[in-house]
Each structure stands twice: as structure tokens, then as C-alpha cells.
């Protein structure tokens, strides 16, 4: 078992900066998700931790040991690849055994560990088959079993579920969580899917353009995004951002007013779709454009003073496009954002 320390890692490709002076600590046994849109540098960071890519500057420590200059095989980690990378010319058994064989483990030990890992991932019936005979989900299990068989100190996963169909992804997600919980392996998990990150991770690092925008527990990230980007990227539907003029320390729009502490004359209110109540009178005027029944809620898309907004209301609410509703956001759950730099500011109320 080992924690990971990423110390001022920077990666440049020619003039382009993929990662900017990134510092990050992953606790021993922690499950950390690197979440971000494609091109944000999350996979590059993972590959630098693995040693498959070389950082331009900075250092990586695994279990207190400086591994910055070591080849991947000397870093004591295992990895699951997006396209599985299960060797096609070896049986499932030999795939799972690969890491142990490379370490020169005795046959009895190999057998024991392969059977343990195969049991965890429920692939015992396929051990003698070749990967070409397996479905995508089964291959993914083989890839995870191969990683767990070596009992790694650190497990790296690069979008491991993105090639699976939606239903299988949900199933594998909960299974992964229970397997990794019981093994207590330090895990770094790259994904662009915020539901996956929310569901799996102890902490999430949200990355954007080569920097970490925020790192926190999933719920905290959801409720208190540090930047407009995080609010917009985490959660579905994304957070609403409504610009409000500020006068005499009050942000005011329609009949809604809330004290704020800002020197600017405009402020952005970040409001989650479910943190809004429909009231009889007052509040924010909302013109409904589209109604989407989602089963558990009715999602309304419309405009508040010309700005796009989404509101989740009770599924049995009677609303039609063209209606005007009055909205009352719950004040304690609004995230106030400085429109100039996109950063959240301290709560006034």
C-alpha cells in the first residue's frame, strides 16, 4: 500500500503546455478520480504517474519513494487501459498471470493469485479461453483481474468503462467499487464521465486546460464548486449561471434579492436545478421553453431575464411551454461567482 505525491509536475509538447505545475497528494488506499473534458491533461497525468510518458519537470513519489526517473516496471503499479490491452495471443489465465510471471513467481503462487483475482471479477469460467472469444465486458474484467493479481500498491485506470454499453457500465461501476474497497488499493481513475467519478471516488480532482480546478469529496464538489467550470461540468443537468446586477450590496433580479459581498456591479449566481422552488408570486421570472419528463423529475428549460436556465420540478407538476413561473432559489445553496474570473466568492448571507 502506498500514497502518491505529485510534486510540481509540468508537461509541455513543444510550445503547448499540457500540464502546468501540478501538485497533488493521493492518500494511501484512497480512490481519486481525475475528471475533465477531453484534452484537459488527465490522461497525460496518469501516464506520467505510470512512467509511460516523461514529465518536462517535477517529481512523482509513490509510497515515499521518488520514482520520477524509474521505468514503469520498477514503479510497483498496475494499470487498466481504456481498450483493455488484454493480450490476444494468451489465454485469460496467462493474461491474468502475466504480471506474476514477470516477477518470477512460483507456479503455485501464480495459480493462487490468478484464482483469487478471477474470483473477485467472476471470470473463472473463461480462464482457458482466448480473449477474442470474450465480450467487451468480460475482457474488461480480465484487464482488471490482471491488474489486481499482482496486488499492486497503486492501481491506475484510464477510462476503463468508456467502451462498455450504458447498462454494463453501471453494473461494472458498482462491482469495481466493491472490489477496490475490499482490496484497499490506492487508485487513480481517469474519466470524463462525472457520474462515474461521483459514484466511485473518495475525492475528485476536476481538471481543465492542464490545471486542477478543484479537488474535493464528490458531494462537496457538487454543492460548493470552486469555479464556474466545475459547477458546469459536475452534475447533470449542469449548474445554472444567472448574471444579476448588484446595487448597494444586494444582487437583484426580478423580485429576487440577496445580499452579496462584491465590489463589482454584476455577480453570477450558480444555482442547481433542484435547489429552486416554484412559488406563487415574487422571485425570478422564468419563461418555460421545453419540458422533459425524466421519470423522477420534470426538467424545465427556459429563460430568466433572457438567460438560459434549467429547473427540476416534481414529475406531476402541470407546466407547458410558454408558461411563466416564479422561481425562488434557496439562498443558502446559491454559489456566488465573480463573473470576471469565474471563481466562487465567499457567501454573504
Amino acid at each position: 500500500m502506498a500514497g502518491i505525491r505529485i510534486d510540481a509536475i509540468e508537461k509541455r509538447f513543444g510550445a503547448a503546455r499540457a500540464l502546468e505545475q501540478l501538485t497533488l497528494d493521493v492518500e494511501d488506499g484512497e480512490f481519486l478520480a481525475l475528471l475533465g473534458p477531453s484534452g484537459c491533461g488527465k490522461t497525460t497525468l496518469l501516464r506520467i504517474i505510470a512512467g509511460l510518458e516523461t514529465q518536462t519537470s517535477g517529481r512523482i513519489f509513490i509510497g515515499g519513494r521518488d520514482v520520477s526517473a524509474l521505468p514503469p516496471r520498477e514503479r510497483g503499479l498496475a494499470m487498466v487501459f481504456q481498450n483493455y490491452a488484454v493480450f490476444p495471443h494468451m489465454t485469460v489465465y496467462e493474461n491474468v498471470a502475466f504480471g506474476l510471471r514477470m516477477k518470477g513467481a512460483a507456479d503455485a503462487e501464480v495459480k493462487k493469485q490468478v484464482e483469487r483475482a478471477a474470483g473477485l471479477l467472476h471470470i473463472e469460467p473463461y480462464l482457458e479461453r482466448y480473449p477474442a472469444k470474450l465480450s467487451g465486458g468480460q475482457r474488461q474484467r480480465v484487464a482488471v483481474a490482471r491488474a489486481l493479481a499482482v496486488q499492486p500498491a497503486v492501481l491506475l485506470m484510464d477510462e476503463p468503462l468508456s467502451n462498455l454499453d450504458a447498462l454494463l457500465r453501471l453494473e461494472m461501476r458498482s462491482e469495481l467499487k466493491s472490489v477496490l474497497n475490499s482490496s484497499g488499493t490506492t487508485t487513480v481513475y481517469v474519466t470524463h464521465d462525472q457520474t462515474e467519478a461521483m459514484g466511485l471516488a473518495d475525492r475528485i480532482a476536476v481538471m481543465h486546460k492542464g490545471v486542477i480546478e478543484q479537488i474535493d469529496r464528490p458531494q462537496a464538489l457538487y454543492e460548493r464548486p470552486a469555479t464556474r467550470f466545475v459547477g458546469g461540468f459536475v452534475g447533470s443537468p449542469p449548474m445554472n449561471f444567472i448574471d444579476m446586477p448588484v446595487k448597494a450590496g444586494l444582487a437583484r433580479l426580478g423580485d429576487f434579492a440577496n445580499p452579496v459581498s462584491t465590489g463589482r456591479d454584476t455577480i453570477t449566481a450558480g444555482i442547481r436545478a433542484e435547489d429552486i422552488a416554484v412559488v406563487e408570486r415574487g422571485g425570478l421570472p422564468f419563461d418555460v421553453m421545453v419540458c422533459e419528463p425524466l421519470g423522477s423529475t420534470l426538467l424545465l428549460t427556459g429563460r430568466v431575464a433572457g438567460q438560459l436556465a434549467r429547473v427540476a420540478v416534481r414529475p406531476d407538476a402541470v407546466v407547458a411551454p410558454g408558461d411563466r413561473l416564479n422561481l425562488e432559489p434557496s439562498p443558502g445553496r446559491i454559489v456566488w461567482i465573480d463573473p470576471a474570473n469565474g471563481k466562487a466568492i465567499g457567501q454573504a448571507a
Binding site: 516496471r73 498496475a78 481498450n83 490491452a85 499482482v150
Partner: peptide
Amino acid sequence: PKEYGEAAEIFGAGPWT
């Protein structure tokens, strides 16, 4: 695919292996 080589490298295989 280069991932095969990378996976082998991660799991402890040297260049000759």
C-alpha cells in the same frame, strides 16, 4: 496497438521480454 507493449511494460516486462 501500442497499449499491448505498454501493458507488458507496466506489468514488469523488460524490452527483450
